[in-house]
Computed example of a mutant assay.
Amino acid sequence: MPEPLLEARGVVRRFGHVEALRGADFTAYPGEIVGLIGDNGAGKSTLVKILSGADQPDEGQILLDGEPVRLDSPHVAREHGIETVYQDLALAADLDPSANLFLGREILRGGFWGRLGFLDKKAMAREASEAIVRLGVSLKDDAAVVADLSGGQRQSVAVARAAMWAQKVIFMDEPTAALGVVQQRGVLDLIRRVRDQGITVVLISHNMQQVLQICDRVEVLRLGARVARLDTAGTSVEDLVAAMTGGTVKEHQ
């Protein structure tokens, strides 16, 4: 195996008397899709928040490219090349896709008008269009506001935004939830294309069939700790369920 790209070692997170993470470990390698699964209350959301800078651990260590890092905020995580696609997508419904891709990273016009805060909408539209084409995203109308797009297209815009800015890792939280079969297939294909660009994808999902279909490996949390690391080749849904619930399952990596 190559050297890990992103690691969590012995991460502990307490909320009062509740210990959400009990020395949790996690490893993601360069250029892979790794699934992060676990039953409700296993600690997945807490671990992802810590790895994406939205929360901080009480104990433990985060390493990026083998070096310890402090991800004090989502902004710091983004500076380290880590992006997150949340389940609610965090899109501005009244803006078009290109404006959403540059949300918070707008390009200003040059000279006097830029100093006054005027945006270079043509430059943003051009770069957004190039990113969308590069990822193979199909939108019915590039100028339509996000509110007028289908669920699958909105999800694609959110993924494209993350892929446009991520340099190392993208976390995707239930990216196919509430989508139809055809839309799910489109989003999964998009995730593969993101991986093929050299970006590591961490997929958080309750859909075990999809996890086995798209992921290279799976890491399983139970009661706030990692309990299994599995290659998807030769692994069944029953193996994943057994790992999540405390049954017997062979571990391999």
Rank of each mutant, 00 (worst) to 15 (best):
A28T: 12
A28C: 14
A28I: 14
Y29H: 13
P30Y: 03
P30W: 09
P30L: 13
G31I: 08
G31Q: 02
E32G: 07
I33Y: 10
G35A: 14
G35S: 01
G35D: 01
G35M: 07
L36S: 07
I37S: 15
D39Y: 08
N40H: 12
N40I: 11
A42R: 11
A42T: 07
K44F: 06
S45C: 09
S45G: 07
T46P: 02
L47E: 05
V48E: 00
K49A: 08
K49M: 07
K49V: 03
I50D: 01
I50N: 04
L51G: 00
G53I: 00
G53A: 01
A54W: 04
D55I: 05
D55V: 05
D55G: 00
D55C: 10
P57W: 02
P57F: 04
P57N: 07
D58N: 14
D58M: 10
E59H: 10
E59S: 11
E59K: 12
Q61H: 04
Q61A: 10
L64H: 06
D65W: 04
G66W: 09
E67I: 13
E67M: 14
E67Y: 13
P68C: 10
V69G: 03
R70K: 15
L71M: 09
L71D: 03
D72T: 15
D72N: 15
P74R: 14
H75D: 08
V76C: 07
V76L: 11
V76S: 06
A77H: 05
E79Q: 15
E79H: 08
E79S: 15
G81W: 08
I82F: 07
I82Y: 08
E83M: 15
E83C: 05
T84K: 13
T84L: 15
T84S: 13
T84G: 01
Y86P: 01
Y86V: 03
D88P: 03
D88M: 09
D88F: 01
A90Y: 00
A90I: 06
L91Q: 06
D94S: 12
D94L: 12
D96G: 03
P97W: 07
S98D: 08
A99V: 10
N100P: 11
L101D: 03
L103K: 11
G104L: 11
R105F: 02
E106W: 13
E106L: 04
I107H: 00
L108Y: 05
G110V: 08
G110T: 09
F112H: 14
R115I: 05
R115C: 03
L116R: 15
L116H: 07
G117I: 12
G117S: 06
F118H: 13
F118C: 11
L119M: 10
L119G: 02
D120E: 10
D120V: 01
D120R: 04
K122E: 13
A123Q: 11
A123D: 02
A123I: 02
M124V: 02
M124T: 00
